[in-house]
Design a protein around this nucleic acid. Sequence first.
DNA 1: GCATGCAAAATTGTTAACAATCATGTTGTC
DNA 2: GACAACATGATTGTTAACAATTTTGCATGC
Lengths: 243, 243
Amino acid sequence: MAKVEETGSYKGSEKLRPEEMIYQEMLDAILDRRLEPGMKLIEEDLAKTFGVSRARIRATFLQLAHDKLINLVPNRGAFVAEPTIDEAIEVFSARRMIEDGVARKVATSMTDARAAQIKNHLDREHTAHHDGDHRAAIILSGEFHLLLARLTGNLVIEEFLERLILRSSLIIAMYESPQPVDCSHTEHDQLLNALLSGDPDIAAAEMSRHLDAIRDRLQLQRPKPGKTDFASIFGRTPKSEAS
Amino acid sequence: MAKVEETGSYKGSEKLRPEEMIYQEMLDAILDRRLEPGMKLIEEDLAKTFGVSRARIRATFLQLAHDKLINLVPNRGAFVAEPTIDEAIEVFSARRMIEDGVARKVATSMTDARAAQIKNHLDREHTAHHDGDHRAAIILSGEFHLLLARLTGNLVIEEFLERLILRSSLIIAMYESPQPVDCSHTEHDQLLNALLSGDPDIAAAEMSRHLDAIRDRLQLQRPKPGKTDFASIFGRTPKSEAS
DNA sequence: GCATGCAAAATTGTTAACAATCATGTTGTC
DNA sequence: GACAACATGATTGTTAACAATTTTGCATGC
């Protein structure tokens, strides 16, 4: 629970430096879809909202853009990112490539203490799921992967994967199927078993399966998400194309 | 040759947008060690040098800091990064974890066209080495790894690895042994053979070996690089510690 | 009625001045 | 002579105003 709040709280720990707090708040808003994909982000409005100058908002924009959570268009402004289907596929493919390696490393360096650490996390995932706390379940699910990355002891991997997991969260928020089927907590159990086997190939294979499963649960076949498909809404084909 | 200039030129393609040009120039200066590790970067001086406002320099700083090429200290300013030995080890360990996956993917999706593409690159590496063009050899060596990343067809991996390779370049510039022993071009040949075998395990193993070899060629055992060790210089031990 | 061009409003991009903070050198005291 | 307090200069952080660009609304003409 504490862990959940630490990473995903709305305006949780208020002793953060203001710059970090603004990043965190905008991040949460995007992942919660209070800021919808494609939405224009106006500097002055945000500056007034947070009580800071436009310069700080601009700096925050650069961070968010670097993490691919917003798009920065010269002279036009900032827009909440709308990851395409191809992007979504690429992100999970990239995660597979990296997290396979993570799984290999964790599997071959497993200790009792580490196993206990993972089990403890899984307990919290199960609790959240049992309590029907969907939001906590999603956050903990992401943190499970981050925990494995941390167990490699490699900060570079950890930081990169953290960004990639955030990006995944936006993708999931955008493409998740209407009826939430977060059965992934049982998959994490299987993953732990694979890691405990100590066999890097088995661990990597299970990680690949898991990430593919997440991807396959998404609705990645919609015509063009975010962009309203008037033709299908009104049951007719467009008369002519706009210039 | 064209490729070399494209990525590593001093002030090459001047039709870049000014913001990108400034990033590129500072990047080149850091990797060339014209800007030494630890050096203070003063906003106003750079602004005058490039004929832009401090605001733009600040934005460029954020980019460079994100790539870990400079350190940003609140109220103190920006300093060229001084990767520690531990950081250097972590970067190459991270690359191994990722590039193993890259090698696996490239090995299992090899075609004649791709093999030719790689061979063509190796030819250019050999030429540069034969001509004694050390600078081009280093750049091409980095681009070899980037080429493999590109062959995975995954933009996420490609972009991340690009940053990691830049960071590696700074590390190599900082820790390379006095007598340049860039024998890595023959290692790239071996890597190609491993990729052509089509066996992902062989390819990954060869990639690991190669990256470990680069790391092991570095002088990663100095007491504290960048920070002058007066005690050893003057052959005596410090009398007392500074407060 | 619809497209085109123009004018106004909104928004981003840039600059310069000011405030806050940190580094440096000096002075005074013990 | 060493240390601390202080004053000075340099540098970063912030703000507000201005310029450039894009978007929007409206009027005109076909």
